[in-house]
Amino acid sequence: MTASDSFPASALLDVYRNTLKIKTVDEGLRRLIMSGAIHPVFHPPTGQEIVAASMGAVLEPSDYLCTIYRGLHDQVAKGMPMKLIVAEYFMKTTGACKGKGGAMHLTHPASGVMVTTGVVGSSMPIANGLAWASQIKGDGRVSVACFGDGASNIGAFHESLNLAAVWKLPTIFLCQNNRYAECTTYEDATSSKTVAERAAAYGPNMVGVTVDGNDAREMWTAMRDAVARARAGDGPTLLEANTFRFSGHYFGDQDPYIPKEEKEAEKAKDSIGRLRQQVLDSGVATEADLDALKAQFEAEFEEAVEFARASPDPGLDEIYKDIYGAA
């Protein structure tokens, strides 16, 4: 297989398109926070766009995603409509969760975003259950659990990987290793050199892979292989995507605990700029095409903001709704 076969130019463009969309929403929300228009507890995905963009480019809309508080990039890449995201950030009743979930808990089953959890590690046990249902129904769907490097040290990680391996579930454990869990470095908290090497503890049914998550080719290819493996019924993958977060644990965190040189070195890599250049070099799109794409996403975002601003707050009667269903 030639390199272009294994990573077609169309996929390259898909990854870039998703990346651009994530960047648009992330930057737009940051502007809104700075201007005082919205007040979410926000965990920016800035720097991790290509990981999610590649995931989204490989998954089908019907595949399941369970992600975490730092999940904006995953949600956008999975196809969640901007309007629903933005209106939820505005705490409006037209938001995805009617303003009752919030930035850390966006849900949209129609896009396959089944759970966004604010609890470290809790995406994993639930993703297994979705995968179990697919296994029983034989519907060919896969489930992705996104989580951070810090979450690889919580008990739910071990329980979930073991169960997925024993039951050979179509679960993809996508660890977005940004080297920090809040203020604690990977090395200070993690016993193994990589997260992926822990896969070896779960026997032959579990595959562990570490990739440069900010390299579209590596990330997309690894994701494609993990998805193919899961769809074929060959079992789960622990996919560790090395990445970096540029905007602190939460928005407003000045991250003094990250050495300046480390951040500078990551910035110098200019992962998104490099990706853009790859797209242009491949000939699949021109500068003008990409600029048009950017303008399109920006217009979509502005429309979402207008929609959110014009939307009402939830009615106070919402407080007693959605606690129990109609029996």
Partner: peptide, 25 residues
């Protein structure tokens, strides 16, 4: 197969139940 013995993993058990229920089981 509709009856599954699990590892001793209470979080994984309830998590699997939750996830499967989100998918209609």
């Amino acid at each position: 197969e509709r009856v599954r013995t699990t590892p001793i993993s209470e979080q994984a058990i309830i998590g699997a139940a939750i996830g499967a229920s989100l998918a209609g089981m």
